[in-house]
Structures are given as C-alpha cells and as structure tokens.
Design a protein around this nucleic acid. Structure first.
Lengths: 343, 343
DNA sequence: GTTAGCACTCTACGTTATCGAGTGCTAATT
DNA sequence: AATTAGCACTCGATAACGTAGAGTGCTAAC
C-alpha cells in the first residue's frame, strides 16, 4: 500500500523526534515542531492509520507513538534522505588513517575507535581474514636451538605468529629448506585448501625432515584456524550506557555480556554479504541483538572482500549518520589497505 | 594501638559478611552468625570502639557497619588467613595453559579470560613488554617489489610487525644485507638503547642503503614504541555490572569509560613493582579507581619481570581468593613463558 | 565486664492522591 | 469530504504520607 505524503511526513517526524529524544512523540509536538500547518486532531487521525498499518506503536494508552521496526525499515529504505557525511568527519577519517601506516592491526583497531567516537555507539571490526584471502608467505625463524618462530603472512597483510618447540635441535640450513618447502606447497592457498592439504604427499618428498614437519604442521594449522576467527576489535562499549534504553541495568548487563562473546560478534560480522547491511531490531539474525540495530559493511583489498566493520546501537539509531560514517570508513579502509599491500 | 582479640574477630566478621552480602552488618547478625557466645549489646560496644579507631563506618544512624579502607587494609595485612587456592581452580589454570602453547598473544589473552572467570571481577593484563627486555631479532620479508614486512621479535617472545613501503624497489639481496646490518647493531638492545641509537653512525657503514635505512628506521621505531604500551587485554567487563555497587548507572558508566582508556590501565599495571601489589580504595594511585580495589602482580621470564596482570573489583573484594588466583596465574605464566622461550 | 531493655533514628517500601500528557470520539466548521 | 475544536477518559509519573523494621546508644541490672 502506498502511503500518502502527509503520512510519510508524519512518520518521518515521529522517527526523527524519537531518535533525538527517546520519548514517545505526541500529536501536539508534531503539529508544533514539524507540520505547523496541520492541527493535532488531523495528525491524530493520521497516526491512528499509521498504527493500523504497523509503522508506529503506542507504549500505553496515554502516551505518544514510537516507531516500530517496520517503521524504521520504511524510513531507512524510502524516507530518509541519505545525509552526505559531514565534511569534518570525513576529514577526520582520512587524516587519522594516513597517519597509521604500517601495522595492519593498528589500523584496524584505529578504525574501530574512530567508528565509535564518530557515531557515539559501539563499534566492532573484523580484521582481514585469511579465509577470504590466500596465504602469501611463511617464514620460519630460529629463535633457539630447538625453537622456531613461524611467521605467517596473508594476502590481506595480516601477520600471525606462533612459537614452535621442536624435540630436536635444528640447523639454520634445515630450517631454510623446510621454509622453502612449505612455501612451495602452501603459498597462494586459501584456508580450505590448507585445511585439506595432503600432508602425506608432502612428506614423501621431505627426506630427512619428516619428523620436524609432522611436528610443525598441526601447530601451524591451529594457529591459522584460531586467528581466522579471533581477530575482532571493539570500541565504545561505554557509549551505550549513556543511552536511556540502557538505564535498566539488567539490559545493560545482558548486552555487555553479548559484546564480550567474540563468537557472537564474529557471527554478526561474518554474515555481511552486501556492501552495506542494515538490520533493524527484530530483523537481526543474532537473537541478542533483537532490540538493537546493526549496521555492517565490508571492506576490500583489491576488490576482494577481506573483512567487515559494524556499528551497534539502539533501534532509534541515527541511521543516516551512521550509514554514511560506516560507508566512508570502509571505503577508506579498502583504499588504504589496497595501497599498503599492492603499492 | 593493638587491637583486642575480640575486636579483631568482630572486624573480620563484619568484613567477611559485607564481602558476601554488600549490606551493612549489624550487631545482631554478628552475634548470631559469628560470635554466638557474645550478646549483641557487647558487640555494639566493641563496634563503637572500632568505629572510633576508623576501621569501620556507618552509612547512616540506623544502619549496620561497613568496613573502611583502613579496615580492609588491616584485614588483608593481619587478619585474613591466606586461603590456599582451590585445587580445582589451580588445576584449571594449569590445564588451560598447557593447551595454549604457541602464540604468546593468545596465551596472554587466555590468562585474562581465566582471571576474570575465576574471580568474577574484571581482569587486565599487560603483555610482555619490550622495555623490560631486549630485542632478539629483526627479520625483513619482501612482500612486494617495494614493500617489506618487518618482523620484530623480542626476548620476551612477543612478535610485532609492520608493513613498510619503500620509494624504490628492493632486491632480496639488498634486503638480506640490511637485515643483517640491523641485527648486528640492534639485537640485544633494550628500548632505551634503540631509541637513542646513533643512526648517523650506522649510515656511514651502510654504503648504498642509506636511503632505504633512513626510510625504514623511523617506522620501525614507531612500531616498537607504540606496541610497547598498547598491548593490554581486558576481560570480564560485564562481571562488574552484576555487583550491587554498580546498580547506579552513572557509576557503571564512569567505570566502563575508565576501562576503555588503555593508557590508564597501562599506568595502573606498569606501576606494579612488588611481586603482588594490593591497592585498596583510596590507596589507589589512579584517581578513577579510588572506590575499587586493584590486585596486581608481575610475571617473569627467566627471572626478569616482563609484564603484569591485575584484577579490579569493589573494595569489598574477596581478597583472599583473588590474591591466590592472581598469584597462581603469574606463577604459571612465568613458568610457561620461560619454558616456551628458553627450552 | 557483660547483658537486657528501651527509646530513638532513619531508610525502605507501599499506599494514596494528584497532575498532566496524550488519546479517541463527536460535533461543528470549511 | 476533509479538517478542526472540544471534551471526557486513560494511564504513567511524581510527590506526600504513613508504617514497619533494622539497628543503634544509653541506662541500669547482673
């Protein structure tokens, strides 16, 4: 059903006022602040219609209206005018980033911090994932007679490392040979290929090093698998406590608990398939986020998706602003990562 | 002034009851639950004395007593019997750790998680610091024609890495030579030495590579300095919201904010000089922790302090338990790290 | 030195009354 | 036919009040 123009304006007014105040919006308020030419009574009639259609709801009889998830959805899809991101903010993102050249980890943490600071909500960021790219290089570095540091570098520029203890001492030459062998076989592979890698086959060609490789390989694999899901950064947890919706301690508690569970955050971020994904309240896959909204977006290296970022806030989120910030952020991230890693 | 035996028992009763209930403790409760042979009236008299001496206080006239910081201090120093850590917990720590061989980062994160889970408070952990150890090895790995990954390994087994972009292409041979040169000069140095390193001097011997080294060195330094203060892990933030003292949202908010500020946590952890350090309420150096208690302890590699861990909770903390957990944790950490890194 | 008894204090909590924002409906107006 | 004024009604929020109960300090007796 097509909504009349005035209904749309009223819905917009309700949503935007509610986003600002977190208080139910009444007909008088709308008549005074938004549709000055229309009387409260008329607006009341329209509101009754909007409620019938499921776009707004009433917390209790004598209160104003608040938007429903469906209302927010319509707002985001059709009504909201995509605010061009504040130039100042855009400048901040650009500037801050170009100072953080170097370590990818740091860049990603920084992105998370910026997201939460600019939006005043909570940000989560998934660092570049191996599963979404390939293995670039493995370097084994001898740190003790019988201890080796494995440095694993991915296409996406993430570096993982693991200390491996050996049963016997190893010579630098042997180490070099093993390094070469591993790189020959594994460089360019993605996680699936590595996980299903035919170790037996390689061992046949590894005269003299069978024992060492048998010892090293499982640990390398473990490190890869672990780091592929664990690299999640958060920021702005405290921001949420500023919101009136979390005045209820038990709500805040549940929520914080969820945010400490990285596997949940991973799931939320990993589901992002589109460039930008908006989940409003009950639309959320993750049960614990059913009364929040989650804006996620992916970033890319050389056009290939490697990770994602997200902002979590209340359903009365400043969608327009958050979307533009998240968008600007992933674009910058993509750009810089691509630049760092491909020249 | 020496406290009489009964006064000490009463103080102990008040503290231990208050730790459990977070409610002011009255004379009747003590008479019933702790000193069954003594009447409430007598206990009241003793309590009045304890209050005069500053060990306990009264929130308001008709309430029971709560311990003061001074009271907790006496309790921790003199009264509390050091509870031997629960065997089960000790087993958990041991077991969990020996599964986490490999990556030091992961080990440290794991320690943080365990600390918060076992204590039900919030844990903070400072990863092994370079400043407290030396540089072991630098490895430059060529990832593109004009991009190099620097892998920095410290005595403490931490690995840092940084992508360095070069203005010109670089050959593998040149890279090898520069790597050797850097290792010659820097391996074994600690942070102070590296920071004040005489670059000019090295450049005189770096025929042909001056430009590259001039480009690389500052970034290496920056990575080192940055990572030396930034590696802090937290866990169990949500635990605090379970405590009645944080039913007041604004308190919880302030507190969470503090915990998001890594520089503050760094300061708190970095001040730990003793093996185990106990700061009760107003004793805290960090202003934001003045109504909490903080138990910190250092861990070592080969006898040399490299990092520290801490638990933050309310002043009515279960001191005995937390102290033993923290102690057990640092001992295990020290042991395992030493084992990993020195065979 | 210890204890019973008692008057006193103060908070926590439940009850009640009131206020006001907001609604829906009806009837009048344009 | 759409809009608006007017009005009775609902319901949450807030304040005022009263009460119950926990705990104290003091006095006097043991």
């Amino acid at each position: 059903m097509e909504l009349g123009d005035r209904k749309r304006l009223i819905l917009q007014a309700i949503i935007e006022d509610y986003i600002n105040t977190a208080e139910p919006v009444g007909s008088r308020t709308i008549s005074k602040k938004y549709l000055t030419g229309t009387s409260p009574a008329t607006i009341r009639n329209e509101m009754a219609d909007l409620e019938d259609l499921g776009y707004i709801e009433q917390p209790h009889t004598s209160a104003g209206r608040i938007p429903s998830d469906k209302g927010y959805r319509l707002y985001v899809d059709d009504i909201m005018k995509q605010k061009r991101i504040n130039d100042v903010q855009q400048e901040i993102i650009k500037k801050e980033f170009h100072e953080t050249l170097g370590e990818i980890d740091r860049l990603v943490k920084h992105a998370s911090r910026l997201l939460s600071q600019l939006t005043h909500y909570t940000s989560i960021v998934l660092a570049p994932q191996l599963r979404r790219g390939g293995l670039k290089h493995i370097q084994l570095i001898r740190i003790e007679k019988a201890a080796v540091l494995a440095v694993i570098i991915t296409d996406a520029g993430m570096v993982k490392n693991s200390v491996l203890r050996l049963v016997h001492d190893i010579t630098p030459e042997a180490l070099q040979r093993i390094t070469n062998m591993l790189n020959d076989k594994l460089a360019g592979c993605n996680m699936e290929e590595i996980e299903s890698f035919d170790l037996e086959h390689m061992l046949n060609h590894a005269l003299g090093y069978v024992e060492i490789i048998e010892q090293i390989f499982p640990e390398l694999l473990q490190t890869l698998v672990y780091s592929d899901t664990a690299e999640i950064y958060r920021d702005g947890l405290a921001n949420l406590l500023n919101l009136p919706e979390y005045n209820d301690i038990s709500k805040a508690r549940t929520f914080l608990n969820t945010l400490e569970e990285k596997s949940i955050l991973f799931k939320a971020l990993n589901e992002t398939k589109e460039d930008i994904n908006i989940s409003i309240g009950s639309e959320n896959q993750i049960e614990q986020f059913r009364d929040c909204s989650l804006i996620t977006a992916t970033y890319k290296i050389n056009g290939r998706v490697v990770g994602s970022v997200g902002v979590i806030g209340p359903t009365r989120m400043e969608y327009s602003k958050v979307i533009s910030v998240v968008d600007c952020m992933t674009q910058n991230l993509s750009e810089i990562l691509t630049k760092i890693l491909k020249g």
